[in-house]
Amino acid sequence: MPEVISQRPYKIPESVLVVIHTPALDVLLMERTDTPGFWQSVTGSKDSADEPLITTCVREVAEETGIDVHAPGIGLAALRDWGLRNVYEIYPRFLHRYASGVTHNTEHVFGLTVPAGTPVRLAPREHTALRWLPWREAAAACYSPSNAKAILQLPRFAGVAGAVPGSGA
């Protein structure tokens, strides 16, 4: 009998970016295990083409941080679709994860407000360290330009009076 090798399905080129922050606009950043010095927010691809984006967000936040969006003190209403979309070229080193001919990913940006002091449990296969930074510092620390740009929009989406997107104010 021939050996059957199961092949993992290709990644779907549609993902979420979830900026986790406190009401004071401190932002959670995590350092990637496979790329030391690469600090980022929660990111992740849809598991299936028909998976709702909100489901992708809830799953990825739980997997990467241990935060349960449905927990008391947070709640699904704390997760907001910012209506921002980023289309970017997939890094060549990751192209093998996608079907042949796929070169770009569409990223949907969300924000999640959590109480200060919310415990975080990192997924050790994905992240080695975490830090909470004021939003301007968090944006400056991000490796990904789309992640940094999203964080600079945080005051606008968090409803901070007088905030001008991209101004750092």
Rank of each mutant, 00 (worst) to 15 (best):
T106C: 12
L53F: 12
K11A: 14
N147I: 03
D68R: 11
T55W: 07
V18N: 13
C142L: 07
A116Y: 03
V164N: 01
A116T: 13
I74K: 10
G73Q: 03
C142I: 06
T55A: 15
D47Y: 05
A158E: 09
D50G: 14
S144C: 09
N86Y: 15
A78M: 00
V16K: 10
E14W: 00
R80I: 05
L53M: 13
A99F: 04
C57Y: 01
S45G: 11
R97I: 00
L130P: 06
P92G: 10
L29T: 07
R121D: 10
N86F: 13
D68F: 04
P52T: 09
I151T: 05
A150T: 03
A77S: 08
P36Q: 07
S41I: 06
A24Q: 15
E63Y: 06
V18A: 08
W135T: 01
V120L: 09
R8I: 06
A140K: 14
Q40S: 04
V120F: 09
V58D: 01
E63R: 10
T106E: 15
D26Q: 14
M1G: 15
T55M: 09
L112K: 13
Y98W: 12
P36E: 08
L95R: 05
V42R: 03
Q7Y: 13
S41A: 14
D81K: 08
M1K: 11
V114M: 02
T106P: 05
E14N: 08
R136D: 02
Y88K: 10
A161C: 03
R136Y: 00
L133S: 07
T56Y: 13
I54F: 03
G111Y: 09
L76E: 14
V69F: 03
Y10E: 14
A150G: 03
S15F: 01
E137G: 07
V114R: 03
S167I: 07
Y10C: 10
P72S: 10
S48F: 09
A62G: 04
Y10T: 11
R136K: 10
G73L: 00
A141S: 05
I5H: 13
H96P: 00
R85Q: 06
E137V: 06
A78R: 04
F110V: 02
R156H: 15
T103D: 02
T22A: 05
G168P: 04
P92T: 14
V114L: 03
L29V: 07
G166D: 11
A169F: 04
A99K: 12
A163M: 00
R80L: 06
A116L: 05
E89C: 13
V61P: 02
R97N: 11
H127M: 08
R125T: 05
A123C: 13
P2L: 00
P2F: 01
P92C: 13
V164D: 02
Y143Q: 14
G83V: 12
N86R: 10
I74M: 08
A163D: 02
E107I: 04
G83M: 11
D26H: 15
G66K: 15
I151V: 14
L25Q: 09
E126S: 11
Q153T: 05
E64G: 01
T43P: 02
L76R: 12
G44Q: 04
